[in-house]
Design a protein around this nucleic acid. Sequence first.
DNA 1: GTTAGCACTCTGGCAGGGAGAGTGCTAACC
DNA 2: GGTTAGCACTCTCCCTGCCAGAGTGCTAAC
Lengths: 354, 354
Amino acid sequence: MARRIRRSTGPLDLRSQAILRAVIEEYVTTATPVGSQALVDRYRLGVSSATVRNILAELELAGLLDHPHTSAGRIPTDAGYRWYVESIIDASPLPEVEQLMIRHQFGQVEFASEHWFRLAASTIASLTHAAGIATPAKPAAARVRRVDLVSINDQLASLVVVLREGSIKQSLVTLPGPEDQETLTTVAAVLNDVANDATAARATAALVRLNPATPHAALVMRVGERLVRVLEDYDRAAVEEVFSDGLLNVLGAPEFAHSEKVRRVFNALENRAYLGELVGSVAESGVVKVFIGHENEPPDMREVALVLAPYGRRDRAVGVVGVLGPTRLAYPEAIGTVRFVSGLMNELVDHLYN
Amino acid sequence: MARRIRRSTGPLDLRSQAILRAVIEEYVTTATPVGSQALVDRYRLGVSSATVRNILAELELAGLLDHPHTSAGRIPTDAGYRWYVESIIDASPLPEVEQLMIRHQFGQVEFASEHWFRLAASTIASLTHAAGIATPAKPAAARVRRVDLVSINDQLASLVVVLREGSIKQSLVTLPGPEDQETLTTVAAVLNDVANDATAARATAALVRLNPATPHAALVMRVGERLVRVLEDYDRAAVEEVFSDGLLNVLGAPEFAHSEKVRRVFNALENRAYLGELVGSVAESGVVKVFIGHENEPPDMREVALVLAPYGRRDRAVGVVGVLGPTRLAYPEAIGTVRFVSGLMNELVDHLYN
DNA sequence: GTTAGCACTCTGGCAGGGAGAGTGCTAACC
DNA sequence: GGTTAGCACTCTCCCTGCCAGAGTGCTAAC
């Protein structure tokens, strides 16, 4: 008993670490509780199953392992996974072959950020056999690069806004009366002048200062207000969009064999608010972050793990790529893949900004 | 025996129809096989359970009902559902209260087609308790309404194409060398002139005829070719995008309680090729169409039913709204909802075109 | 043609039992 | 003192048998 207390409070000795690692890696591949005999058989531990049992009991006391019932093998707890992730997070590069393969795939698609997100999500999904997720790079505050106003019919015009990082927003504007395209082009030109490189706040300020003698001043104001709203809407959303791919991979995992759990996972992915929060935290930190089971706040995410990495530049725009899977995730591969893809996305975004 | 053969070949008499209808409606609500006693208890049939059993046996012989095992109640076959759908397809208007509710919801969102698709899908989902699907209205051939070219950096420009029906396509163009925004604007102006209201084919023809003395002719050609490719890519895709909502509703149905089936349903929804085919057929016919179970070609869709209705104008652009659910679907409600929403979308699209 | 009655069939749930896996404890060993 | 062999114990899993219940199909009477 005294021995146990000592072990459970102090750091793990090397042998305990090796055994914990073995349990986790075995469980990740087999998805069944791991017994002491299986460990001795499959790993060169150099001790008997009885000794292993003693250590398993200690690891369980320390909260790193659990067992579903008396006569079952051990499974890792979220805390066990956490320890494991900490121990490997700094050293899990993606094998070079796969790096080359991914680079090749990115070389194949058209040079357009939208394609990248999809590709990032699907690449991650196929490499990790879990769900891949990716969000577009989003700046803290949208800035206008260009405004265009296209006539649709007598009462409607389409306001097209190109943002600084190249993404596009569109909104239909109802016109007070019929206007020809020429007038609309003039209005767009005024807005391009007034709101050039402006954020929502600055665009608002510029509109207030607008010279009332400007041609079509009323229309400029009307469209300008809509422009500001488009920018504000964009800024308000924490995450613009979450691309995901390979959800079926997660579905295939035995822990999600029953549809009730599947339901939760899907709910989780729909949980934009929480994802937005995570994206923010990950973008802030600038490094790969892992969120395991109960470390996630929403109850629906208590059975999944997320590996997220930011890309982009904090002073410009940031997005996130990552993996969503069962807590029984192949963490080293997931971390390696996500880290590599985020680096690649960095390069691409850098190229966009020069 | 002679009696059975007569019945199984001829059309159904009124009583058989009433019983078939009762079985289907009962099964749709309870999701459990329907027994003769349950029918007598719950529907005013005026006959005993023994008589009902005789008729059930006939309906089974006619291929309209089935029973999973000897001592189980009856469930409808796809042919049974088909008969039912034919019998109610012309008369299942959506209750006025719900019509008003939907109109109200559409009044709430911003006037922009993208919002409509999402709203259509989610409205249909919540009203039918199945998955709602919607595709944007897509013309047979894209036509350019306006072209814009925005500088991103020394090597890149963003080509923005507004199509006639107001949707937007974007593509990044690599520039042979640094160009200022003014040059790009000139190039865009030339393209706006040359490719005004053009389809991919006409734009190609116009580029061929381009006067080589045009300022920046080489750049115009380069961007023009990309423009043509954007149009061609758009035309090529049978369905641009399929919005869906309420997949969780389908997931909740007892027939999809096991994840293997769920998997198939998701695969089915990813099956853009088949959906594109259906959309084409529905758009062509101009009316609500129902596809039940085995009537669907892809094996993954043999357990689902689709109710689809086109909207838009055949000579302009057409899209589709619909329901995807288990074959055990509340068809009258689904048909009524889909028909009404498609009508509403018609109004909105008409408004867009004036 | 309809119905009551009845034998029959099949499912679903429950209890019992044996095999198997794995544990925790104890006592012997190095 | 840590390590190990041995062993009793526990719990799951799976199979079997059993029973109640639901529903059918058939027959004979109405």
